[in-house]
């Protein structure tokens, strides 16, 4: 029998389908019985959607335009 604590450890594997069938069934029954864990599962799914849509980036102070110009310059050197 799975407990709420197990759900927090396995929720992402459950979402990804990375758990053996017997465990999956056990977790599924826990979700049926426990509204807190159902809500938690839904929140983790929403987290993935929100993060995927939000597309947070690495902090980066690179001048991308200057880098593009520098790389473009390498091609000019090849040509001549």
């Amino acid at each position: 029998m799975y407990q709420c604590k197990d759900i927090t450890e396995e929720v992402n594997n459950y979402i990804e389908g990375d758990v053996p069938l017997t465990k999956r069934i056990g977790l599924f029954f826990h979700f049926l019985m426990c509204s807190c864990c159902r809500n938690y599962l839904q929140q983790i799914r929403s987290t993935i959607s929100i993060v995927t849509t939000s597309q947070p980036k690495e902090k980066d102070s690179t001048d991308l335009k200057a880098l593009a110009q520098q790389l473009q310059g390498l091609c000019d050197k090849h040509d001549h």
Binding site: Q3, C4, K5, D6, C34, S35, C36, C37, N39, Y40, Q42, Q43
Partner: peptide, 9 residues
């Protein structure tokens, strides 16, 4: 191992 907090939608 049961939750003691309430997880709301």
């Amino acid at each position: 191992g049961h939750r003691i907090d309430n997880v709301s939608p």
